[in-house]
């Protein structure tokens, strides 16, 4: 690639390319910047701000901000980690999260981030909103109680499945996930094989009849924190393995 340059992330100098986001550049060098609304393979939108870093002192979303030559990025500072904690705690209290019976527990990115950030319990009072569950589809359940409005399903359905099954209505605290039908998911073109169904970071969109198949202890975040694979890949790279 032409015109490659370097940036530093938390004091480490790493390569980056024009147009590459801070998050992508960091990830390619084995530095994990927490994220929720961003997922590899879809267009970043900067909705959740969990990836917030300081770039040359300015507060930016690492998933959308392009890296520029000699940029100095801070990610793991006390200030930024504390902001991320607050954001994650707010996401918990804005929805209705009962991890003890949630099918996504152990592989949920919101929960995984809370573990990684060392959150024992949200410090804020819960809102306990009333949200709708849509179980109309034979193979998919949509539980808005757990939706964090990240938009990953929307973008995946639109850009990868070419379907536009999901969208948002309302603003601010009234924003909620809508489906492309008068009311029910069953009346949309959603299919259980859609990539959008697997794009949800939390237990808001789930495939039916799959619950609790992985024993506690073997689930992705039971042993290793979220982001560990990014960091492990870096170790492989340092030892001479290929960078992905």
């Amino acid at each position: 690639m032409s015109d490659r340059f370097t940036i530093t992330v938390d004091g480490r100098e790493i390569p980056a390319a024009p147009g590459q986001t801070i998050l992508a550049a960091a990830q390619a060098s084995g530095i994990y910047i927490p994220r929720l609304c961003h997922m590899d393979g879809i267009e970043p939108v900067g909705a959740c701000r969990v990836c917030t870093v300081r770039a040359n002192g300015r507060v930016v979303a690492a998933c959308t901000q392009p890296a520029t030559a000699s940029m100095v990025v801070q990610s793991q500072t006390d200030e930024l980690v504390s902001w991320r904690r607050q954001l994650v705690e707010m996401l918990f209290v804005e929805g209705n999260h009962f991890c003890m019976f949630c099918e996504k527990s152990g592989s949920c990115e919101l929960q995984g981030l809370a573990y990684r950030l060392g959150i024992a319990a949200p410090r804020y009072e819960s809102i306990w909103p009333r949200r709708e569950v849509d179980a109309s589809h034979p193979d998919i359940i949509l539980d808005r109680n757990r939706c964090i409005l990240c938009g990953r399903c929307e973008r995946t359905s639109r850009d990868l499945d070419g379907k536009h099954v999901f969208g948002f209505v309302g603003r601010g605290i009234h924003k909620r996930l809508a489906v492309n039908a008068r009311a029910r998911l069953a009346d949309t073109g959603a299919d259980v094989t859609d990539l959008a169904i697997g794009a949800c970071p939390v237990g808001a969109i789930l495939r039916k009849n799959r619950a609790y198949r992985t024993p506690v202890g073997d689930r992705p975040f039971d042993r290793e924190p979220i982001g560990a694979p990014v960091e492990t890949r870096a170790e492989l790279t340092i030892n001479g393995g290929p960078a992905s």
Binding site: M100, F101, A120, D222, R223
Partner: peptide, 8 residues
């Protein structure tokens, strides 16, 4: 240790 903190 990380493995001992769980919400479930």
């Amino acid at each position: 240790p990380y493995q001992l903190i769980k919400y479930d």
